[in-house]
Simulated scan of single mutants.
Amino acid sequence: MSSQATSPKPDVHFASRGSSYYDVILAVFCVVLVVSNIAATKSTEFLSGDVSIGPVQIVPIISDGGAVLFPLAYILGDVISEVYGFKAARRAILVGFGTAIMTFATFLVVMALPGASFYENQDAFESVVWSGLQIVAASMIAYLTGQFLNSYVLVRMKARSSEPGLWRRLAGSTGVGEAADTFIFCAIAASAIGITTGGQFVNYVVVGFVFKCAVELLVMPLTMLVIRTLKSREPSYWADEPADLRA
């Protein structure tokens, strides 16, 4: 009787999330998410003119203020997923979700408080808060979907290859997560920032996706350096305990 040789299952490692490094990354992750949601209430345009291909607007390029910082959330998500595993990433995603909800719940309470006699910006504040609520709804749905996909894809790819192929995991998970995140966010948030036509919407989606992926690919060498540094400094990363227990 002949037996078929099978390749040994790769050794997959994750660090324990009971670490001061994880706490710092989680704190920065939550701040990035909250600030991005507030910044996203401002729509932006780049390049002057009016260039279209059929119904699709090419110029001006449409984006929002959240694009300045939000790619960092995915970079941090990659770091957490690669070093600490899916359970740790899930915790970070849910904590970030809670901080964003708390932020805008606070804004709603503040908006309802009586303004001082000398306060002249109530209308402007309400305008930002109400548009912000739509942005938050868009961001939260997109964020939960995109971040979970990003983390899941990265961890599943790591389960197949173990340590080699880090750049492929980062690029592949980014593409999947950002595609879902960008489309869902733009579909819900478009009217809140003043997008009214299908051509503008396509521009908004494509520009957002390309920009976020380009930023992450541009800083990938730095992301990989951070990941490798954390792996070398986390004593639990190379421990013999099974990865699924450490994740």
Rank of each mutant, 00 (worst) to 15 (best):
A39F: 07
P10L: 08
S48W: 10
T41V: 13
F29C: 00
W238V: 10
G18Y: 08
F46I: 13
A137Q: 11
S131Y: 03
Y204F: 15
A189T: 11
V215S: 07
F118Y: 14
S162N: 03
N150I: 10
E241Y: 08
A239W: 11
G54I: 00
C213R: 08
D244V: 15
G85F: 00
R169E: 10
F104T: 00
D50C: 05
E178D: 04
V68M: 05
T223H: 01
G96W: 00
V59A: 03
L225T: 13
V136L: 15
F14D: 03
A180H: 08
Y22E: 00
A15Q: 08
N121V: 07
Y204E: 05
Q147F: 03
L222Q: 05
K9A: 15
A39K: 04
L217S: 13
S162H: 10
V129K: 02
I227N: 00
A138M: 05
L144R: 02
I188V: 15
R233Y: 08
V129C: 01
Q122M: 13
A100G: 07
Y143G: 04
T106P: 11
L113Q: 13
V31A: 15
V206H: 05
F97H: 03
F185E: 06
L113G: 14
V79Y: 10
E241F: 06
I53A: 15
Y119D: 15
C213G: 05
V24H: 06
S81N: 00
S63D: 04
S117T: 15
F211R: 09
L94V: 02
V207D: 04
Y143A: 02
G66S: 13
L170F: 08
A116F: 12
P221D: 13
